[in-house]
Amino acid sequence: MRLPLAASPAERRLLPEGRLSGPMPWVIAIMMFLMVLSAAGGLGLAQAARALGGALSNRLTVQIVEADPARRERQADAALAALPRLPGVRAAARVDAREMKRLLEPWLGADVLGGDLPVPVMIDVDLDSASSRDVAAGIAVALRPLAPAAQVDDHGRSLAPLARLIGALKWLAALLVLLMGAATAAAVALAARAALNTHRATIDVMHLLGATDLQIARLFQRRIALDALAGGLVGLGGALLVLLLLGSRVAAVGSELVGSMTLPPVAWVVLLLFPLAGMALAMAAARWTVLAALRRIL
């Protein structure tokens, strides 16, 4: 069995091969550039969604919002004692003063925190199951007699719109990759048809000498595959450059959410495989187009 790109020097001469001379490799380079960026965006968003889900799912925060420090502490202690016994609660821990200071300092300043400003007590609660909405309501009811100043903050619910937005953007990125893949296949089909028309006389002669459709299709397939690979590598190179530049900008933002949009190693492998996938797509499109066109002649 012959490899798809294997061809004798004579076969290679049968159709003139001008690498990167026609517009097709450049069209594929542009498509690949956009596809890799879209895919990277989608994969980054998927990673961010995972990070967001991991941080927020099965977790909630109980705040004791009480101006009087003694009552606040009493209610906090009561809540901390009751919470681990409530159904669905795996653990409860008070956010310590140093952590609270770190969280609030950017907003209130270091001087204010040291003064008389009443700062709520915050208790991180880890839940057993994902049904945090029901559990959160149960916790609020259970804590009401023990700590009337307790407020249950279900992170999953409050950040659900953001999670949905990230999910939608992820699917949008996937859709863009598919659409650009389809556009690439269409561009390849047009290029194959143009090449068929250009070399019509040669193809007719080969047919009459007894060449099979597959023999002829292989010539076009090989040429278009090499063009697609060259274009794909150029597009991938450009996209990787952009991703590296964007990565440094993202790191400079310092946002936890934006920073979570990193690409895991497997995502980089997927992106590096795009030119090969593009080449396979181009070969399939070229083969299908050429065989369909050849079937129309005797």
């Binding site: 047919h207 009459l208 000498l209 007894g210 099979t212 459709d213 079937r295 005797l298």
Partner: peptide, 9 residues
């Protein structure tokens, strides 16, 4: 059609 090449040769 598939048998044509054999005849043409």
């Amino acid at each position: 059609r598939a048998r044509m090449p054999g005849f043409r040769r």
